[in-house]
Write a protein that binds this DNA or RNA. Structure first.
Lengths: 210, 210
DNA sequence: TTATAATTTGAATTTTTATTCATTTTTTGA
DNA sequence: TCAAAAAATGAATAAAAATTCAAATTATAA
């Protein structure tokens, strides 16, 4: 009962911080070993709380995992949409998107592993309906990306070599493909520092002849 | 001790058949529910053997899973390499590869789910070194695919818009991307019946101007 | 047909881990 | 400073499966 005007009290802020610490430890563990190979015991030790305390923050293991994935997805989605809604023509938007995608991939490897496992592989969380929620968000995002292609075609910036939605799927797949190859064998596959390495495969053919 | 000249005795053939039946049941279950959500009990019931019998064929659950994945990969790899080594120019080889990829995807959905979980997501089998083995095979296969692009570029059939290895990664990613989208929401994403829908994104820009 | 070997079985054992909750520790406010 | 409330703890419980193995069944061949 410090000040009443402020929304989150000191205690509440402290709780939030603790919650984040648990999620951070859990993210690191889950991404390394997968959902089923991480015990609540381990998460407790890594985050330096007692097992019982975890259950004060999360109803159960599944909910902990779900919250973790959803919160990280929020971050990523917001960042990607920002890139698509930024200034510039469609080429610029795509370039920003690829650049951001590559950057976020590299600086969020633990989550990326988790996300790929969750979206491409078998979901650990079928009961919690997590995969369904993710699929819907992914659909919505691809819709936005397709819009960029669609607008580019409408304005004559791009040639209509394929359906905008197909192009969106293709671009997203290729980015993930490149980054995944790098993640799996960095020695054989160079990290695509320059986003144009990826984008050129699309832009070159897409660009209308001047 | 029937005939000595024949390699696999009647008994041995019977064993093989039983083993296949177990793997078939396991594939169906694993692909539907994921490694950790399938018990040996379930596999036993589905294949109509006793639990103990499973352990006569496979050292443990992990080995059963590993054998399953590896044997299916063998089939796929052989088929894909066939397509790349077939007759025709590089365009024809790529077209055959895409067509075959799409066909095998559709007619082997249970295994495809498993493979994606294993290769894109978190491997269930880190101890057994399965992911490492798969990665090596994938690398080798991409090398072959890159060779096709490389030859096409050398012969002037393709323009060198990117490194052959990058093109191989990109094509493989796009195929998987399209098929995965279809798998996840068939109502929203049409099945790419015509392999050219996928290949055109590559071939159009690649084809040298006549 | 029958003794022996090979195979199959599934109940019992062991292991692993999620979850609970009585107890202890810490914080709060007078 | 102290009693009451809140929070944290982790040993104990419960549940789920993997694995084992003694007993039962089936196949072999003399």
């Amino acid at each position: 009962m410090t000040t009443k005007t402020e929304k989150p009290s000191r205690r509440e802020r402290e709780k939030l911080r603790q919650r984040q610490e648990i999620l951070e430890a859990a993210l690191s563990l889950f991404s390394e070993k997968g959902y089923h190979s991480v015990s609540m015991q381990e998460i407790a030790e890594a985050s330096e709380f007692a097992i019982g305390t975890l259950y004060k923050f999360f109803q159960n293991k599944e909910c902990l995992y779900r919250d973790l994935v959803i919160e990280q997805c929020d971050r990523f989605e917001a960042a990607f949409l920002d890139a698509l809604e930024g200034p510039g023509d469609e080429i610029e938007k795509l370039r920003n998107f690829v650049r951001l995608h590559v950057d976020m991939f590299r600086s969020n490897l633990p989550f990326v592993r988790l996300f790929l496992a969750e979206s491409k592989g078998a979901s650990y969380n079928s009961k919690a309906g997590l995969d369904d929620a993710l699929r819907k968000r992914m659909d919505a995002f691809l819709e936005q990306l397709a819009l960029v292609f669609g607008n580019g075609i409408k304005s004559g910036l791009f040639q209509k070599i394929a359906d905008p939605h197909a192009l969106a799927v293709a671009l997203d797949s290729v980015i993930d493909g490149f980054l995944l190859r790098w993640l799996e064998s960095p020695e054989r596959n160079p990290f695509p520092e320059d986003p144009d390495v990826i984008l050129d495969i699309f832009l070159n053919p897409l660009l209308s002849p001047q």
